[in-house]
Nucleic acid binder design. Structure first.
Ligand SMILES: [Mn+2]
Ligand SMILES: [Mn+2]
Ligand SMILES: [Mn+2]
Ligand SMILES: [Mn+2]
Lengths: 148, 148
DNA sequence: CTGAAATTGTAGCCTCGTCTACATTTTGGT
DNA sequence: ACCAAAATGTAGACGAGGCTACAATTTCAG
């Protein structure tokens, strides 16, 4: 099989461009878990006044051991603090991230609903989609919602 | 801190619903890598006539060792076959999945563009988003594109 | 005030996805 | 036909994220 030149397959992106896109998606994924945690912790603090590991675990559908381990990663990354047997608290960085993530989540849901996706489905899909929506796309979503 | 009842925090979903959504997003993520591989392999077969591990690795931006290991997972799951030093081939199941994934990818890009996201950005974001778009949402996207 | 239940924490195991380093096989230019 | 270069495959390490099992602490009902 002889090697084909780039020009002979104009339907595919260049190797470099494609590799870059896949790399982006991979790193978005690695941030996704932390984003969900800080958003959830922030929501729990706002609605029940505290975020306890067990609640976090139940809401995420994982074991409490898993939640605790991820929370320690949050601490390692400077997004949260906690003392033994006390709840989890977000640092300023953590709270700022939560804020951004919460807004993004809402915007994604709104966009999905605006293009005709049923509410529950929009909520469910947004939970995964949100982590892959760039700032540029978010801005486009805002514009679209404003002028539709 | 006394326990609050569900009714007192109407702004959050129930624990069960939320856990279910997060679980969905997690399993979508675990399928994402295989989806990207079969789509890429199928594209390579169509445009250059074969899919070799090194090409797959370069396009994904990972080492060839990583690509080979993931390809063996593809084989384990019945999506691909390969013989030593020959290229990779998709099974009927693999080809069917590739077809679905390719259509979904295009539809997601088209939807993003239709709501105003710039082309390159749409392509980049779609690479991650596509794996989290349910069939129901896809149908809504199709309708939206048809009648906009 | 006290002991059972709930919560929190720790330890150890697994799989997946990534890498580097090295070994083997195939390919292609002379 | 040969040998160097490219491609392919294998081995071993690591971190993330999940689990179960068990230990320690805190909370609360009686
Ligand atoms: Mn999410
Ligand atoms: Mn979210
Ligand atoms: Mn993808
Ligand atoms: Mn894709």
């Amino acid at each position: 099989m002889t090697k084909l030149e780039r020009a002979e397959r104009p339907d595919m992106p260049t190797e470099a461009a494609q590799a870059h896109r896949f790399g982006k998606a991979r790193s978005a994924q690695s941030a996704a878990l932390l984003e969900d945690y800080v958003e959830l912790i922030s929501d729990l603090m706002a609605s029940v006044g505290e975020a306890r590991p067990t609640d976090v675990a139940r809401r995420l559908g994982v074991s409490h051991a898993t939640a605790i381990k991820t929370i320690s990663r949050l601490k390692r990354e400077g997004l949260a603090t906690s003392r033994p047997y006390r709840g989890v608290f977000l640092t300023d960085d953590g709270e700022a991230l939560a804020e951004r993530v919460r807004k993004r989540h809402r915007l994604v849901v709104d966009l999905l609903v605006a293009v005709g996706v049923p509410g529950d489905c929009a909520e469910a899909d947004a939970e995964g989609i949100e982590h892959h929506v760039s700032d540029v796309a978010l801005a486009a979503f805002r514009d679209f919602l404003a002028r539709r």
